[in-house]
C-alpha cells in the first residue's frame, strides 16, 4: 500500500487538485473499493462459518490471481479509453497452446513462451483492428471472443489434455512459503507499477483515455499507445493460461467462458473509470479480490450457482453508477 500516493498523482483529474480533503479521498479511484473490500470481508466473515480462516483467505487469493493477472492488463486498455472483452476465449486459446506445447516438448517454460506468443499475436490483431483498422474495440474484441471460442471448440473440443506435474509449476506449489500463483500476480503488479511510473507509454495511455482530443492536439501517439495496451492484454492472457492450466491440470473447450465479465467487473469495481483516463494498478487487484470474496462467500453460504451472473451484473452496474454519482458530485463542487 506504500504505492498509493503514486497512484493518485498519475490520475488526470484536474478537478481533484484544489478540492477539500474528503473530496480528494473521494477522487482517489481505489479508495472506495478498498473500504468496501474491508467491510465486505469483515461482514461476510461474521455471518459465514469458515470464511475468516487462513486457509480460506489463501484460497480466495489464489482464485483471484487469475482474474488479477488479466485485469491488470485490461485495466491499461480501459485507461487508454478502449475495452477488451475477448479475454475469456483468448485465455482458453492460450491454454490450449500451452497444453499442446507441453504435451509435445514437456516442461513449462517453452509452453509459457508459446502461450505468450499466441496471446501477444491475438492482442496485436485486436489492437491493430481497433486502432489502425478503425473498428471500435468493442466490436473487434466481441467478434474475437466468438471467433476464438469457435476455434477452440473446433480445434480442441475432442481433445483431452492432462498436464504432467512439471508443466504445472506456475499454478501449484510454494516458493519461500508463499504460493507460486500469488508470487506471479505480485510480480506482475510490481512490473506494472514500474511501467506506470517510469514509462512515457503509461503516461500517454492515461492522457489519451482522459481526453482524446487534447492528446491528439498534443501529438501523442494515440494508436501506438492503444495498440501496446492490447498486446499487453494478450500477453497477460498467455501468462494467465499458464497459471490456469497449472491450477486445474486439465482443459475443456468451454473453459473460462464468461471470464471476460469477471475481469471487467474487477476493473470497474476497483474504481478504474470505464470512460478511461482514471485509475491505478491497485484497482484491478482490489477488484479481483473483491470478486473472489463475493464468489467464495456465495459458495460457503450455499447460494446456488445460478445467482452468480445476477451478482456479477449488479456489481458492474453498481460500480459504474457509483462512478456516475461520484462524477456528478465532483463536477458540482468545482
Amino acid at each position: 500500500m506504500s504505492l498509493d500516493a503514486g497512484s493518485e498523482t498519475r490520475t488526470v483529474d484536474f478537478a481533484a487538485d484544489d478540492v477539500p480533503q474528503w473530496r480528494s479521498i473521494l477522487s482517489w479511484p481505489a479508495a472506495p473499493s478498498i473500504i468496501f473490500l474491508v467491510v465486505a470481508t469483515l461482514g461476510v466473515g461474521m455471518v459465514t462459518d469458515g470464511f475468516l480462516t487462513i486457509a480460506n483467505l489463501r484460497s480466495i487469493l489464489e482464485q483471484a490471481v487469475l482474474i488479477s493477472i488479466v485485469a491488470l492488463a485490461v485495466n491499461q486498455v480501459i485507461l487508454s479509453g478502449e475495452i477488451d472483452v475477448s479475454t475469456g476465449s483468448l485465455l482458453a486459446v492460450c491454454a490450449f497452446v500451452f497444453g499442446n506445447t507441453a504435451n509435445v516438448v514437456g516442461g513449462a517454460w517453452l509452453p509459457l513462451l508459446a502461450a505468450l506468443a499466441a496471446g501477444g499475436t491475438v492482442g496485436l490483431l485486436n489492437g491493430f483492428l481497433s486502432t489502425y483498422g478503425r473498428v471500435p474495440s468493442i466490436i473487434t474484441t466481441l467478434g474475437m471472443l466468438f471467433i476464438l471460442r469457435g476455434a477452440v471448440l473446433l480445434g480442441g473440443g475432442a481433445q483431452v489434455l492432462n498436464m504432467a506435474p512439471e508443466s504445472r509449476i506456475f499454478g501449484q506449489g510454494m516458493l519461500a512459503g508463499v504460493p507460486v500463483t500469488i508470487l506471479i500476480a505480485a510480480s506482475l503488479f510490481l512490473v506494472m507499477e514500474i511501467v506506470s511510473r517510469h514509462t512515457i507509454w503509461a503516461r500517454n495511455a492515461i492522457a489519451i483515455g482522459g481526453n482524446e482530443s487534447a492528446a491528439r492536439t498534443l501529438g501523442l501517439p494515440i494508436r501506438k499507445t492503444r495498440l501496446i495496451a492490447f498486446v499487453l492484454s494478450g500477453l497477460c492472457c498467455g501468462l494467465a493460461a499458464a497459471v490456469f492450466l497449472g491450477q486445474i491440470g486439465q482443459l475443456q473447450a468451454t473453459a473460462a467462458t464468461g471470464f471476460e465479465l469477471k475481469v471487467i467487473a474487477a476493473v470497474v469495481l476497483g474504481g478504474t473509470s470505464i470512460r478511461g483516463g482514471k485509475g491505478s494498478n491497485v484497482s484491478p487487484v482490489v477488484g479481483a479480490v473483491l470478486v473472489g470474496v463475493i464468489l467464495n462467500a456465495m459458495t460457503l453460504n450455499r447460494v446456488p450457482g445460478t445467482y452468480e451472473l445476477l451478482i456479477l451484473g449488479s456489481l458492474i452496474l453498481g460500480a459504474v453508477s457509483f462512478e456516475g454519482v461520484r462524477q456528478k458530485l465532483l463536477t458540482r463542487g468545482h
Binding site: G50, F51, T53, N56, S59, T254, A255, A256, L295, G305
Partner: peptide, 22 residues
Amino acid sequence: AILPGDEDLEKSKNVTLNYLQA
C-alpha cells in the same frame, strides 16, 4: 450438501475446495 459445478472443471474444483475447507 449438493453443489453444482456447472459442467465446468474450474468451478467444480473451486466449489469443492471452498466446501471442504469449511
